[in-house]
Amino acid sequence: MLEVRSLRKTYGDHVAVHDVSFSVQPGEVVGLLGPNGAGKTTTVSMIAGLVTPVSGQVLIGGEPLAGDTDPKKRTIGLVPQDLALYDELSALANLRFFGALYHLSADALERAIASSLQLVGLADRAHDRVSTFSGGMKRRLNLAASLLHDPDILLLDEPTVGVDPQSRNAIFDNLETLKARGKGLLYTTHYMEEIERLADRVVIVDHGRVVASDTLEGLQRFAPAGAAGASLESIFLALTGRTLRD
């Protein structure tokens, strides 16, 4: 469904992403892990069309993504790390606006809004201003705004930053529901336990390169010597080192 092929991005002399390749299949959750500055967000931005790669391709259903108005962008839903919402507007007004960007008709948009709000448990707060929402509610609305056009692939850039365990759990439930519906999810985070709970496969990047790509079980081969049944965190540290990155 989504294939990332040899993506490369540079900023001057700095190589942010170097020859990154991986894929996301329908109904699959791929965890994208990496230390700060490893190139995770740049990779996600290239997939979403926010950043133009120097070389490489983003393929959707085998076809390269081409340009800002490529209809294949409708198959992608981006959940930004920031709470990309208008606090001054109601949840409904936010969703109406973001849905309209995908050329949804009025009826289809209203149905999509109802469905999305229902999924994230905010149907009863549709008419309230976002500024009155808690952090967890905003995170859920941030997710709902990315689902309106019913994308096949969801790009989730640290979607649980700053939320309490209840909201995080609710978001996980939402994501598992989406996975069950056959959506492919690319999930970036610093929380290893989230990947352990959600991901079918894990791609670990460091210094812009893929250093490991496998299932959770398959990653055990990168575990420190003698550490049978090592945690994902210990494998991650074994692959990326313990040097502070920022």
Partner: peptide
């Protein structure tokens, strides 16, 4: 700054 432009740019809308 608030990340809203990312959402706008990720939609199939021309510059």
């Amino acid at each position: 700054q608030r990340g809203l432009w990312k959402r706008l740019r990720s939609a199939p809308v021309s510059r």
